[in-house]
């Protein structure tokens, strides 16, 4: 019998939303270390709002978010936003974008050391984006940008990797390769991953656990069970009636 995985993050009675308007209410969820969780939901279901609240970008309207310390310190979060959210006016190479990931460890006003630069380069190569290093980030394709943003999240040396729609607006073959990369990161390095997506088959195929946001509530379970065709049918049927 294997010991249950340590909980990395707990949400207790959490209500999230914008301003005073709740989008999701009274969520209580646990995220075990080393699991790959898919956060599923239609557009506007509250995936990004929940993700941003977990990251500290939005304040919760009610409830608690509690991280379990890792090696006596607060866990480091790696965040890959939707690539369209970044302004192309900045003349940044892919390498410079990835280098931002190490800023959490570099004190204000200090230079980024050679070892941190090497680490950023390693992260780019790890995501298959090594050859994009010198190219301007704003000129990359959607899939290439996503690889660079995943590399940037990895550069933070995260204990918890949160990705917002990493396959949105990307063609099928590139989508497959991004999802394969995430699976590889999870299997080889036991990264704890939470991936927001509206793509039900992708979550079912790649994630271990799934959280399905529907009508302000969260359904949770093993991805293979919760998102099995008969369960999905039952949930949708139940809601219809």
């Amino acid at each position: 019998m294997t010991a249950p995985a340590k909980t990395l993050l707990s949400l207790d009675g959490l209500t999230v939303g914008h301003g005073r308007q709740p989008v999701l209410e009274d969520l209580s969820l646990r995220f075990a270390a080393g699991t790959f969780t898919g956060l599923l939901g239609a557009n506007g279901s509250g995936k990004t709002t929940l993700l941003k609240t977990m990251l500290g970008i939005l304040k919760p309207l009610a409830g608690r978010i509690e991280f379990t310390p890792v090696d006596g310190r607060e866990p480091v979060l790696g965040y890959a936003p939707q690539h369209e959210s970044l302004d192309p006016i900045y003349l940044l190479s892919s390498f410079e974008v990835v280098l931002m990931g190490v800023c959490g460890r570099v004190k204000p006003g200090r230079f980024i050391s050679q070892s941190e630069r090497d680490w950023a380069r390693h992260c780019l190569e790890r995501t298959g984006a090594g050859e994009l290093s010198r190219l301007q980030f704003s000129e990359l394709s959607g899939g290439q940008k996503q690889r660079v943003l995943i590399a940037r999240a990895l550069a933070a040396k995260p204990d918890f990797l949160l990705l917002d729609e990493p396959t949105a607006g990307i063609d099928a073959s590139v989508k497959q390769s991004i999802l394969d990369l995430l699976r590889q990161l999870h299997e080889e390095q036991r990264h704890t991953i939470l991936m927001a997506s509206h793509d039900l088959p992708a979550v079912r195929q790649y994630a271990q656990r799934a959280i399905w946001l529907r009508q302000g509530k969260a359904l949770e379970g093993p991805a293979a069970e919760l998102l099995a065709p008969e369960s999905v049918e039952a949930i949708l049927d139940l809601e219809t009636h």
Binding site: G56, I57, G78, Y79, P81, L86, Y90, L92, G104, A156
Partner: peptide, 22 residues
């Protein structure tokens, strides 16, 4: 010049900066 790294990060991607506890 001294704080260009910080100014660039919070301007380019403030959400990422928050996630890095800036």
């Amino acid at each position: 010049a001294v704080f260009q790294k910080e100014f660039l990060l919070v301007s380019f991607d403030p959400e990422m900066a928050v996630s890095l506890k800036k």
